[in-house]
Write a protein that binds this DNA or RNA. Structure first.
Lengths: 337, 337
DNA sequence: CGAAAAACTGAAAACGTTTTCAGTTTTTTT
DNA sequence: AAAAAAACTGAAAACGTTTTCAGTTTTTCG
């Protein structure tokens, strides 16, 4: 079932079929109708390989995700898929682990699949503009923060939150409640990682309130799994039992930490307040419900795609910083000790 | 950067490049090495559009998902992606809502993207073999249960759990603990839906234990969102407050239900036991941890892909029924009243 | 050493589109 | 009513691969 068949069926040439398909103006209304009917009758579906081949580009957007085990990213990914589909593109996903290089993987994907655009989702992003030229097509970093203050702003697009400022905000909320001994639970803190930025926000919020940062209140995990967060909380508790609040860099880690605290006999929020960043669905329904700074997941996905499509269509690169919103749960209380 | 460039660079013909790329035996080791080097030097990446065009098929597997808001499906999807990638294929995802028809959507996707195979994930599957011929390529239903006992077994492949039997098992566990007034929380029960099958398991487990099914203990939601499950539990509680156990068709619904029970002053598991089916990660960390029949998510994804690849390579269709495993949490106790 | 077999290589067709260019018909203008 | 412009249509080239077929070189073996 090719254009040729449709052409024969409707008695016009292949070129005319192509014109109808691509909404070219130069085709009589009568002919257009006839062709459309033929397409219907024959259930013709264009072969996108052939189309992509001649156009030297597809209508496919690639998404390279690092760390899909994170429910927050999964949720952003979901809205990205939705947005891509609504914009008339298709999506290919490429998960990678911690060891792979997203720029290299992305570049290879682009060339092999003739992608028209790329989204880099999750993880960190500390590439210079030179290192990203291999990508060759427009791309948008989603949830990445570029930490090179000096980087030329027009070199790439991104949609992100200000990890430093949001962490600062979270910790400040704890301080305002009266907490002084505030522990923190981090993921891996490689250079420029989200955890590192949030850790800086934590430190500065404390310092600006005149509280010294105490390393023995800092615990971190390799990766962001709940199991690791649970274990890390146990390590923390083995070392200290006098902190009255805990800040975790993600909701998942927060939920796991609460369980660990609970199992150790520490009551949340009476003995220890907890605050996190993410705002995933399930943390509304835990007992107690997690207090968290909710990232705008849906806008994040939609805006990422909108910007990418704009850039594909010739617009300038664009950095979009979104803000979190406090979602009050039941894990925030003044200290009792 | 095409094969032609590589051919010129390495001084052989295009055909030889192709042979090297496709591991054709008919090429001298020396030439192969030379070509490989040229590919390296030039950073050549094959154009899959051209390749797909001539092969009239791609190495792309499509996944049509209904209901990605369900964390369980997301998790299966993740392992499917992993398995597809490891098998050397690429994946395109196509989310659909409740109104769309997965077979029609899948068939169109297959033809447009020249997919070599299709996975139908989530939702229900009540198509006859005739209705699925339009898909044209091998496909596997994952988590679907085909409820046509009479359906020719060789017509299609599937990987699933026995929803009826697993629900029966769950409810039997409650009965064995001594529960008699057992409520149930269902998603939509269209014909042949998973919820309906699990509901049948619930009914039969009760009946076989000599307990009458009481319609006022049955509550259902449209869709499987946590919010809806929460509200449904409230409706249930408004109607009855004497049930001592609750069976929910998914972990997410179970977690939301526990929250609703808790907020209504009903203690879990003291006043009411809860059991669910799914076994998602987070339900280990809720307070109390959810008792659930864990579906083998990872095997489910991997086996789905394995079977699909087998069928693509010419093997017979295959139905694989997997079993759940009890994951004991803290929501199961004998009735106190 | 010569012939047959095996191994290797290249030219060219084919895959199904889009697009350019030229050609034909219709409409508008004078 | 003729010429010019506009609208429409078709033939053919191009996109970058794979594959077939035929041809050439090398190896094997009697």
């Amino acid at each position: 079932m090719t254009m040729k068949d449709v052409a024969e069926y409707s008695g016009v040439s292949i070129s005319t079929i192509s014109r109808v398909l691509n909404n070219h103006p130069d085709v009589r209304e009568e002919v257009r109708a006839k062709v459309l009917k033929a397409i219907q009758d024959l259930h013709y579906v264009p072969n996108s390989s052939a189309r992509d081949l001649v156009k030297t580009q597809s209508d496919t957007i690639g998404v390279v995700v690092r760390g899909v085990e994170n429910p927050f990213l999964t949720s952003v990914l979901r809205s990205i898929e939705e947005a891509i589909r609504e914009a008339g593109y298709t999506m290919v996903i490429h998960q990678i682990g911690t060891e792979e290089d997203e720029v290299a993987e992305g570049a290879s994907l682009v060339r092999s699949k003739r992608l028209c655009g790329l989204i880099l989702l999750g993880g960190r992003f500390d590439y210079t503009p030179e290192e990203t030229v291999s990508i060759e097509v427009p791309f948008v970093c989603c949830t990445y923060t570029n930490s090179f203050g000096s980087l030329e702003k027009t070199a790439y697009s991104s949609v992100y939150i200000d990890d430093y400022a949001e962490a600062y905000k979270a910790v400040k909320l704890l301080i305002e409640k009266g907490h002084k001994k505030i522990a923190v639970l981090l993921g891996a803190t490689d250079d420029h990682s989200i955890s590192e930025l949030r850790y800086k926000g934590y430190c500065d919020a404390l310092r600006n309130a005149g509280i010294e940062v105490d390393k023995s209140l800092v615990e971190q995990t390799r990766g962001y799994s709940m199991k690791k967060a649970y274990n890390a909380t146990e390590r923390l508790l083995a070392r200290r039992n006098d902190f009255t609040a805990l800040f975790t860099v993600s909701d998942s880690m927060g939920i796991a930490a609460i369980k660990a605290l609970h199992n150790a006999g520490v009551k949340v929020p009476d003995d220890c307040s907890v605050i996190a960043i993410d705002g995933i669905e399930v943390s509304k329904y835990t007992i107690p419900a997690l207090t968290t700074l909710k990232q705008p997941r849906k806008p994040m996905g939609y805006e990422t795609v909108r910007i990418l499509v704009d850039v594909i269509k010739g617009k300038k690169n664009c950095q979009l910083r979104l803000k979190t919103e406090l979602r009050e749960g039941e894990t925030l209380a003044p200290p009792k000790r």
